[in-house]
């Protein structure tokens, strides 16, 4: 079997080998339900759609994805197994991609578990299922981007808590990039290109464009290239730390 898939399989099994997976899924579902029903008043809106549900994903994932990703490398550094895996005759790319993929599939599983909500809105009314499907795709890509950044942070330290904090901070910067608050702070002194560049990094902006249901190719490309870039950075971090 391909070494990337072997790493993927081992890492995915690792998620389920402890109660952490169950705890995580419960927290995630409770968080989603809480946000959707109590904060966004899902039932009072009188609309058969899931926008109230997807609205909260960037914020919920901001904390939950670093929690999934923080262990990927930090744990190996702490226990020393990084020495085993990094001296196997495989490219660091298979390790990096395999690990990230396991976390991403795990996040995907959490999303799949929210699908009863989808069934419910179909029971209550007639939502635009195309929009909902695209929203799920967008949400999963968003999770992938958060996770790619979290794996990167995890490769920097043997301390999972530090990896978690680092990932939340960097992810938060990407979320905030689209907000007027941030843009207003840069606007007085930065040229337009820079302001646009910063705004174009916004996770929320891209996520919302996908979640509106139009097949937003640029937004898809944005997430995919960001994931690719973060994984590349992860490989570089592993190489640089060898020389440290």
């Amino acid at each position: 079997m391909n070494t990337t898939l072997l790493v993927f399989r081992r890492e995915l099994a690792a998620y389920f080998s402890t109660p952490i997976a169950a705890v995580f899924l419960v927290v995630f579902l409770a968080g989603v339900a809480g946000m959707t029903f109590f904060v966004a008043n899902f039932f009072d809106r009188g609309q058969a759609d899931l926008s109230a549900f997807f609205l909260w994903h960037p914020w919920l994932f901001l904390v939950l994805m670093p929690a999934i990703g923080m262990r990927l490398w930090a744990e190996e550094r702490r226990s020393g197994t990084i020495e085993l895996i990094m001296t196997l005759p495989v490219s660091p790319w298979s390790l990096v991609v395999g690990k990230w993929l396991a976390a991403w599939v795990f996040a995907g599983l959490a999303l799949v578990l929210t699908m009863p909500l989808w069934v419910t809105v179909n029971y209550l009314g007639s939502p635009d299922n195309g929009v909902i499907l695209m929203s799920y795709v967008g949400s999963w890509l968003l999770a992938g981007a958060y996770l790619a950044i979290a794996t990167c942070m995890s490769a920097l330290t043997k301390n999972q808590i530090l990896a978690f904090i680092g990932a939340v901070v960097v992810n938060f910067l990407f979320v905030m990039a689209g907000f007027d608050l941030v843009l207003a702070a840069v606007r007085p002194w930065a040229p337009n290109v820079i302001i646009e560049a910063i705004a174009s990094l916004s996770f929320i902006g891209h996520f919302q464009r996908i979640a509106e249901g139009v097949l937003e190719i640029p937004a898809l490309i944005f997430f995919i290239s960001l994931i690719f870039f973060a994984l590349w950075l992860n490989v570089r971090i592993l190489e640089v730390r060898k020389a440290a």
Partner: peptide, 25 residues
């Protein structure tokens, strides 16, 4: 290579672990 302290994946069984290493090789 046996690294110092013989680090291993604690959550795996011996058979899963050795099969994993063999497959990676």
């Amino acid at each position: 290579y046996l690294p110092e302290g013989a680090p291993l994946y604690p959550d795996m069984t011996v058979s899963d672990f050795l099969e994993f290493v063999a497959a990676m090789r």
